[in-house]
Design a protein around this nucleic acid. Structure first.
Lengths: 198, 198
DNA sequence: CGATTCTTTGAAAACAGTCAATCTGTGTGG
DNA sequence: CCACACAGATTGACTGTTTTCAAAGAATCG
């Protein structure tokens, strides 16, 4: 399955496009390959694209005053990623988006996305649904950060995204969950007291 | 200015509706009065409406395992409020939404909103814009919670929402910022060492 | 391997929470 | 108009979670 058909399958699950609409939609996306450690968004530059992850893993992060990296968003197959504050308002980004693995993305420019949205009610609906789901998921994350301890947030993350927990380096998981790598390491150690303890 | 014309002015700033479209849009909203301490959303019940605040102040909060209240969202004039996870997916709410003051709201039901969205491309665009802005604002909040200390979050809140900081009880501000009332009180004390200190 | 990159560990310190008591204001009903 | 109740804010001592720092261990990759 190539990138286009993967995106086609994805949009088929969300937007009720007919065949021609699906083709026209996918046409504006451009496939790009990314290498591990490659940046696709950087602070100071406006995020020009929204990216659909065909293959690979990415993360978006900001740098704190002390130089710490704080992961704002993760992306793997069938997820979207960008600096949305930058992309939506077309203002300079505050985030880095970097590839954690070699991968394949399908990018749409802000301009082409706008044209899609205005060209068809159905496309507009598709992006509205994306944005609503994104709002709901961010709200769940805010709730988790307000109500749970570091250990609980990690447990919750393991349950919710078991595959991500395996795939992402631990410093990425830690910074996504709002704790230091050192502390996550200690949490993990407490959970699995010793190796070969059965 | 009544509630309807206030909403009309608001939608005029976001959606490019003509006169008739504005009238038709506003027609489906129903005005409701709320008294201080009145709940408009409660856990276990599906949030049936999205609310536009004409007048008053509200807050949405969840209850933690220890009984603490965590404020997820605030609402004052010209803001929207609901439990979006519940409203969007039409599932039982996890949040309370309560009036902090007597007020006036304009509510739209999930069903009517769906009809609006499907009846016109422009209405769809309006709700897409709402959702995108909401996503961006939640992302900013996540960044703040990951990168800033309690004191910095309070400073940022004061700068960003000076009117809210005056209007909301301090325990609401504290629980919105992810800290205890006691700790916020200590932060405030440090900032303004003593009354009459000049 | 040889050099990064990532993870673990432990001791000390900082940040923020808990608990309990007190203080303040504000309304409401008699 | 007063008194009482109650919601909200403050204070201080103590506790606990999480961070910081520094060093050493694994793992990975060219």
């Amino acid at each position: 399955m190539n990138g286009q058909s993967q995106l086609a399958a994805y949009v088929g699950r969300i937007g009720k496009f007919d065949e021609q609409e699906t083709v026209d939609f996918i046409k504006v996306f451009k496939e790009v390959k990314v290498k591990k450690r490659q940046f696709i968004v950087q602070p100071g530059f406006t995020a020009q694209h929204r990216y659909f992850v065909v293959k690979g893993a990415l993360r978006a992060y900001v740098i704190g005053k002390g130089g710490e990296e704080h992961t704002i968003q993760l992306g793997v197959e069938d997820w979207w990623i960008s600096d949305y504050n930058s992309y939506i308002y077309q203002q300079p980004a505050t985030m880095f988006v970097i590839a954690l693995e070699d991968g394949i993305l399908l990018q749409v420019s802000h301009d082409d996305e706008s044209k899609l949205k205005s060209s068809s009610h159905k496309y507009e609906t598709f992006f509205r649904t994306l944005a609503e789901r994104s709002t709901a998921s961010m709200q769940r994350r805010i709730i988790a950060s307000l109500t749970q301890s570091a250990e609980e947030r990690y447990e919750y993350f393991l349950e919710t995204y078991p595959l991500l927990a395996e795939r992402m380096p631990q410093y990425v998981v830690a910074s996504y969950l709002g704790m230091t790598t050192e502390f996550l390491s200690k949490i993990r150690n407490k959970r699995l007291p010793k190796k070969g303890s059965s």
